[in-house]
Design a protein around this nucleic acid. Structure first.
Length: 584
RNA sequence: GGCCCCGUAGCUCAGCUGGAUAGAGCAACGGACUUCUAAUCCGUAGGUCGUACGUUCGAAUCGUACCGGGGUCACCA
């Protein structure tokens, strides 16, 4: 039950009564808002619809507002309507409507906040897609958490979501990886390999891989030529790396539904070739030269003719090469084919989560998706800005003594997955962020993860306490749903209920904008509302949750606390953060 | 030089498809523990929303230009 969405409909209905002959009212009203006003003296629900629609309806905003008021004032849920400023409609509601919200939460807690915006539409969310050349490092973490939370949010709103990972396993880097592992293989067989030569991967994570190869093949390939061992080692090492990455993702609580291998796109009559043929049929491929990038010293710029994709026809800044000088396809050519494959698999709604270093890739991807789908599909490119690791307010290096980068595992082992996930989601994805190891381990309001989890635990604790103090009280969910909510008549009670009632609206806004951080901020607010109410109980006994002398009030308060607990749990769940019933 | 992102209180950040007197936390100052977990809460103070024009009933939000910070720029993936 989203009372703001509900009121949009009521207002629209009133507008319909006023203008029965207009058929464009829905469109007109779409640009208007129905929202909780900042200032309580403006009521509990406020709309700007009169200002938005007045011009098209050939009237003035205050006049329209007053006509709407006349019709709507008969609504039993509305105690008063005020017209303010240039034409705002401010609705003052009876408490009853908040009690109904509370009742609907308790009736089916899993349903509250959910909506069916997706109507079963398929959405593909590609995220992480880290190169399979080593374990995940911190740079990948934000995108991993963001993509996963966004996917959960979409599922919550009725979308059919596929979490997808694109494995870049076709390029030269896989050969480099195999060569690096070959060194470790020799090392495992007792050879002195000295320093890892530059250009190869020096990471220690390849040592166990080399050992495994040695166990499996013995000295069979020790003296063999590269052409013999490379095709054998390559796939094995790749699989080992993917296993490493899957383990890292698991630590974060992330799992993908589908892993797509770039390799399958290549080959004689492969998907890249098919895709380019299709683009060619549409006249989107041509031979030509590209202007050198301006302002950049183009030392080894080669002014040669190449095969280009007409990306500029779809809003990109320049056309893009499809074939390298050695005849291989470019990475982007493969990517076009990949996104065409997504489209052919039925995804007209696509989302991709990329790091800040790929922000320049956004336009060409959108161009590609539009080109291969004939304009039927679109992709929303979400860029996660960089995370700076800090300790006690000072930045620290991303690389360790061994030369390895700080990994996801290091991060999770030090502060825990809940902290990592919540903190990374407690910021707009577009904003760069500092992640302070020290701060994040504090248990105070400065640490939002703790703050929200504590609120959840506190709600559970209040319920336990009620059971202990008043053993005769029926505190089952159905009994609470039938409690006498009119007991919740204080300003504080009503404010808390109103905060609760905003949850569906927050979810809808977050999913529309593809911005899971809004959920995190709402949970922080809701937690603050509960903590505040709790503290007032210390001064004013009438605001305590457990009142042994007043079973009806206690039951109603417990209903409210339970509703808060359910929403916090649901919200944390969407973010992939645990909701502990008690703190240790 | 082109493109993308950022610029809001001393610090870290919110600000909902343009709405009413721009919010929160931290830091500062002043309060509240015979309590349902004080790991908490309440209050005070703090802003030319980078700058300048423009769009309109109304701009932190949209447009243009500039300033400052970060990222990125064919034949890597």
């Amino acid at each position: 039950m989203d009372i703001f969405a509900d009121f949009s409909l009521r207002i629209l209905a009133a507008l319909g009564e006023l203008y029965p002959d207009r058929e464009d009212l829905c469109e007109l009203a779409e640009r208007s808002t129905v929202e909780p006003p900042r200032d309580p003296s403006h009521g509990q629900v406020s709309s700007n619809i009169a200002m938005v629609c007045a011009k098209s309806l050939k009237t003035n905003p205050r006049q329209l507002a007053s006509s709407l008021k006349e019709i709507m004032i008969t609504d039993e849920d509305i105690s008063d309507i005020q017209i303010a400023g240039p034409g705002f409609l401010n609705f003052f509601l009876t408490s009853d409507i908040w009690y109904r919200v509370l009742g609907s939460i308790l009736e089916d807690p899993g349903k509250f906040g959910r909506n069916d915006m997706g109507r079963g539409r398929a959405v593909n969310v590609e995220f992480v897609s880290a190169n399979p050349t080593g374990p995940m490092h911190v740079g990948h973490t934000r995108g991993a958490v963001f993509g996963d939370a966004l996917a959960s949010l979409l599922e919550f709103c009725g979308f059919e979501v596929t979490r997808e990972y694109y494995i870049n396993d076709a390029g030269g880097q896989i050969d480099v990886l195999a060569r690096s592992a070959f060194l470790r293989y020799r090392e495992a067989l007792g050879q002195d390999i000295g320093e890892i030569p530059p250009g190869l991967y020096p990471g220690e994570y390849l040592i166990p891989v080399g050992a495994e190869l040695a166990r499996r093949f013995g000295s069979k390939y020790l003296k063999a030529s590269e052409s013999k061992w490379l095709p054998v080692f390559g796939p094995l090492v790749l699989e080992a790396m993917m296993e490493l990455i899957r383990q890292d993702l698991k630590l974060l609580g992330v799992s993908h539904d589908f892993f797509f291998s770039e390799k399958v796109l290549h080959g004689e009559n492969g998907k890249i070739a098919q895709t380019l043929a299709a683009l060619e049929r549409d006249g989107l491929v041509y031979r030509g030269t590209l202007p050198p990038p301006k302002g950049k010293p183009g030392e080894d710029w080669e002014d040669r003719e190449q095969t280009l994709f007409r990306a500029t026809s779809f809003g990109d800044d320049t056309d893009r090469p499809l074939v390298k000088s050695n005849g291989d396809y470019t990475y982007f050519a493969a990517d076009i084919a990949y996104h065409r494959d997504k489209f052919l698999r039925g995804f007209t709604d696509q989302i991709i989560v990329l790091g800040a270093d790929h922000s320049g890739y956004s336009k060409r991807l959108q161009a590609a998706v539009r080109a291969v789908s004939g304009g039927k599909a679109s992709i929303d490119v979400k860029i996660c800005q960089i995370v700076r690791l800090m300790r006690d307010g000072k930045p620290f290096k991303m690389s360790k003594r061994s030369g390895d980068l700080v990994t996801v595992r290091d991060l999770v082992e030090e502060v825990g997955a809940d902290v990592v996930r919540f903190m990374l989601l407690f910021r707009r994805n577009e904003a760069p962020m500092d992640f302070d190891f020290a701060l994040v381990r504090e248990q105070s309001r400065e640490n939002p993860v703790f703050y929200v989890q504590y609120a959840h635990a506190r709600a559970c604790s209040i319920a336990r306490k009620t059971g202990e103090e008043m053993p005769g009280l029926d505190t089952s969910l159905s009994a609470l749903a039938g409690a006498d909510f009119s007991q919740l008549s204080s300003v504080e009670d009503l404010e808390l209920l109103q905060t609760l009632a905003q949850w569906p609206r927050v979810v809808a806004a977050a999913v529309r904008a593809h911005e899971p951080h809004r959920v995190a901020f709402y949970l922080y607010d809701l937690a603050g509302a509960l903590h505040g109410f709790w503290a007032r109980g210390g001064q004013d006994a009438s605001l305590r949750f457990v009142n042994p002398g007043q079973p009806e009030l206690t039951k109603a308060r417990l209903a409210m606390v339970t509703a808060i607990q359910k929403v916090l749990e649901q919200g944390l769940n969407l973010l992939g953060v645990s909701a502990p019933r008690e703190l240790s």
